[in-house]
Design a protein around this nucleic acid. Structure first.
Length: 234
DNA sequence: AACCAGGACGTGA
DNA sequence: TCACGTCATGGT
């Protein structure tokens, strides 16, 4: 086992299952060992269970770009007042009620951009006719970059795509396992080549990295109080 | 008051 | 390819 496996084990043992991707519509009636917390579903990996939950993940992935999840949650709850999480309903609502739509997603920030991005991804989603898109195809949607594409594929479609985010770069460059300015794809490939895990492990790993990042890599100087992973530092 | 938040895009070198 | 500015609200 190399560092990537050992760090995962360490994080999982310390923080337990994260229950990503969260859903405001998650009813909590599914059996889990650790219960359901505010839309999270730790230990339940049969998510999403239908196209509504899938589409909620997709629009949530757009809304959470450079934005905290609590803000996204407010936006999703606001939106849900007007529409079901359905691509056609979203498109219809966006055409007839642009103002209300933007007001609803305002908490997530960048509401003009994200308004257009949500329309783009909705039109793309409808064009799929229920098929799973390739990574390249999703990346062609304006508003979907590397991280959003991988998030949708990993959490929405259950594909083994490792998600790299700002915390991943901070933590693993602090530990000396990657370089500060390594590209997204280089880091992604590094994880996918060195980490031995299945889809649910990929899902947990990224979520655990975010959790750990929030605790020790949000305030500068990053990582100085990271006792958990300190012994992995090169 | 400054900085960060589960980034992406357009631009100019 | 890559560094930099822009997009925007909300929390600390």
């Amino acid at each position: 086992m190399d560092d990537y496996d050992l760090i995962y084990k360490k994080l999982l043992k310390n923080y337990s299952n994260q229950g990503w991707w969260p859903s405001i519509g998650f009813d909590g009636k599914n059996p889990t060992k650790t219960g359901v917390i505010k839309g999270y579903h730790p230990g339940f990996y049969e998510f999403p269970r239908n196209t509504t939950e899938l589409f909620e993940i997709i629009i949530g992935a757009i809304l959470t770009q450079n934005t905290s999840w609590t803000s996204v949650e407010k936006s999703l709850i606001n939106l849900r007042e007007y529409i079901n999480f359905d691509a056609q309903e979203l498109l219809d609502f966006s055409k007839n009620n642009e103002n209300k739509f933007k007001e609803a997603i305002k908490p997530a920030g960048y509401y003009n951009q994200k308004f257009n991005y949500l329309i783009n991804i909705s039109e793309f989603y409808l064009s799929l006719n229920g098929n799973t898109p390739s990574r390249e195809e999703i990346l062609n949607v304006k508003g979907v970059g590397n991280e959003t594409a991988d998030s949708i594929l990993l959490y929405g479609y259950g594909e083994k795509q490792f998600v790299i985010d700002a915390y991943t770069k901070r933590i693993f460059s602090y530990l000396g396992l990657i370089k500060e300015k390594d590209s997204y794809l280089k880091i992604k490939n590094l994880f996918e080549e060195n980490f031995n895990g299945d889809v649910k492990d990929f899902q947990e790993y990224h979520a655990l990295i975010v959790e750990h990042g929030k605790r020790h890599y949000s305030k500068k100087p990053y990582g100085v109080n990271d006792k958990l992973l300190n012994n992995f530092k090169k």
